[in-house]
Design a protein around this nucleic acid. Sequence first.
DNA 1: ATTAATTGCACCATCGATTGTGCAAAAAGA
DNA 2: TCTTTTTGCACAATCGATGGTGCAATTAAT
Lengths: 352, 352
Amino acid sequence: MRQESKKKATIYDLSVLSGCSASTVSAVLNGTWQKRRIKESTAELIRGLAEKHQYTANLQARGLRSSRSGLVGLLLPVHDNRYFSSMAQTFEAYVRARGQCPIVVSACRDPQEERQTVETLISYSIDELFVAGATDPDGVHAVCEAAGLKHINIDLPGTKTHSVISDNYEGGRLLTEAIIRHCDGDRPLQPEELYLFGGRNDHASRERIRGFREVKREIFGADPEECIQPTGYSPAMTQKAFETFYAREGRLPRAFFINSSINFEGLLRFLGQHPHETFADIVVGCYDYDPFGSFLPFPVIMIRQDVESMIAKAFEIIDQGRSPPQLHLIRPELVPPRTALMGPLDALKDID
Amino acid sequence: MRQESKKKATIYDLSVLSGCSASTVSAVLNGTWQKRRIKESTAELIRGLAEKHQYTANLQARGLRSSRSGLVGLLLPVHDNRYFSSMAQTFEAYVRARGQCPIVVSACRDPQEERQTVETLISYSIDELFVAGATDPDGVHAVCEAAGLKHINIDLPGTKTHSVISDNYEGGRLLTEAIIRHCDGDRPLQPEELYLFGGRNDHASRERIRGFREVKREIFGADPEECIQPTGYSPAMTQKAFETFYAREGRLPRAFFINSSINFEGLLRFLGQHPHETFADIVVGCYDYDPFGSFLPFPVIMIRQDVESMIAKAFEIIDQGRSPPQLHLIRPELVPPRTALMGPLDALKDID
DNA sequence: ATTAATTGCACCATCGATTGTGCAAAAAGA
DNA sequence: TCTTTTTGCACAATCGATGGTGCAATTAAT
């Protein structure tokens, strides 16, 4: 019994059809009918009509009335990146499981854009917001706070609300140690042969750099300043840093730590411009995991941030209401070269 | 003048504060005030108050009244993939530029989930829907049609509404030719040495396979049936296909065409289980572009689908209203091995 | 000085669902 | 049989913004 018109059925339509009041229809269809002591037979009748006329609730109306929307937001810096896109994938699954609607938006690492995007989401009365990798988490916090919106930081911490982040210091140490260990077979690595590229002045980069430097000091007893090359989070700038180094030294560093897969793309651009010999014997560590990155022609040790656990933890925290802001560290995983891990997509069935 | 309470200011609050009626406030703040002949000075007053009290419209209320929401949807199969995530990135930029709010959701290649997700989006009165890579575009169409929702297919075509897709036949030919050409330096390739892995019975796969087979027939005069190995779109199944082949033949095919980057991940999993010699001299073509994939230790020729043009075309079509359903082909680009292309992220400024 | 035209805004119904309240009819108890 | 309790539902206000309509007050035209 397909609705021939384009107009969707409302509770009023069903109210007329059933001879009941709109409030009764509403109660039946939103599950509160027992509380309202609606007869089973009435409920049955209305449910039948709803089915027949393909009724679905207008969620804007519901949201307006109840000032909740069933929408849960995830604010990302960018989509086009395996780390964040797998976060989106995992996030969606969690939100769906709770019967809500995930809404994922990116704000381009622009503090202004971040705040404005959140304002927009708030205007749609989203119920909760997950703020991932925000450039200015506390700015976002202020906006959420003013609107009474529950929110939580992921990946980059803020000071005003809970944050679930990768244990960047530990991860930085792990990765640095692994790089050094990997070079052990050959001529022992010298402190000035191990560089770090990428990142900026954010919490994650700082912690990773701290881990990197401490391990270098512990193992080498030295940690030359010039080995740290922060380039922001752009492929273009990272490429430039490699080009500059190469122009000066005539080669790449023997080993280096790259702060993220986005910076790693800068290395790729460099590689595309230079012959194979240029990087025949480098060892690379990357703080991010990308399956393709793991199989490059030189050893690439990667860190996989545990997105699944981070999202799980974040939901756990946001569900249990207010408590003083706290930092939750999730231990990342070291991924040896040439490793193809399973991802969120493996949870999907593939039909044919 | 920060609002101390958690409640957001409404037009009624401003109406009281300004001494004007709510409708006047509304008109001033939504830009229709000239049409309503509101005095400039009144408008000024109200705008000042709005600013002062940080008024932002409740978009659910607006949407309810006007039965439009300012939301534009993009339905993806999955997030966690460079092709679709760059599509999301580009889509967002376009929607933002029109002053609307992008909402990106994935439906896991499940026809049922696709329809249900769209139902949900419709309940939020989204204004338009872009359906990318849908398993069942015509099923989605039916749902949209019933709700009078403008929509368009991307990547996989439907028969009931406009579709903007990659020219898969041409792309398939391009890639196949490139693979064969690449092998020319060595001993000439034989028809039974060139395989195709991945894909399923969807339009894109069929067209790519058609291109592949035609080129093989043109060049080799032969096109053995067993060289086509559709495995669906899952890394796990693709890996299994490679393992099976390897178990039987003791090696990988000399050259092969992989239907998508997701299938390519299946190859990675295979590679992770086998020593380097196993794939010392293979040549791979992949119908998708991933910057890391381009730099693997064997030649990887890739096809980059022109996401930017596809999205642009889709917006163009959806803006110009109804017309008989048509298929719009966008020519993809052949990417030689070891190439790092720019992506949507390069449009972002990187601040520090 | 009238009448006509224009300006400037208020009033009110409306979008679709939710929810507190009230009240008849039916059932139970005395 | 008459009260008390329970059952089953209707009524109406409300969420916040929009837009058609109407009506004073002001300005212009005659």
